[in-house]
């Protein structure tokens, strides 16, 4: 899996690059779309015009890879929710911690980068 950079800014260029992947994830707001996605994830990716790299990141749930390809966390979170994964799970993925470790870090005051 991809290693995370410090920050992911959804700038205008990333919005353009990540347009298809964000549109796909955004579509999962709709229950009918969630059903169709779950039925055949690869076909759904193709229907939304994802690049091969983007499709791979989605199918493999490479959450950091998605960000590298222009995804925004607010969009990919809808996919995580479909998988019944929390924002704390994703926090763990991005930082190389287990969900429990990440939650403990938050409860002890969060991660300090002063």
């Amino acid at each position: 899996m991809t290693e995370a950079r410090d920050n992911y800014l959804l700038d205008v260029a990333a919005s353009r690059r990540g347009y298809a992947i964000n549109r796909l994830c955004g579509s999962l707001k709709d229950p009918e779309n969630r059903r169709r996605f779950s039925e055949d994830e690869a076909a759904y990716c193709d229907a939304y015009g994802l690049s091969e790299e983007q499709k791979k990141a989605i199918l493999e749930r490479d959450w950091t890879g998605m960000l590298e390809l222009g995804a925004s966390i607010f969009y990919t979170f809808k996919l995580a929710m479909l998988d019944q994964k929390s924002m704390q799970y994703l926090g763990g993925v991005f930082t190389g911690m287990s969900t429990e470790e990440f939650m403990a870090a938050m409860r002890s005051g969060g991660r300090n980068f002063g």
């Binding site: 995370a4 966390i73 924002m87 994703l90 990440f102 938050m106 300090n112």
Partner: peptide, 16 residues
């Protein structure tokens, strides 16, 4: 207030 959801700095809190 302070928070970051994604990237290596996920979980950032800056109380100061």
């Amino acid at each position: 207030m302070s928070h970051q959801l994604a990237g290596a700095r996920a979980g950032l809190i800056n109380t100061g």
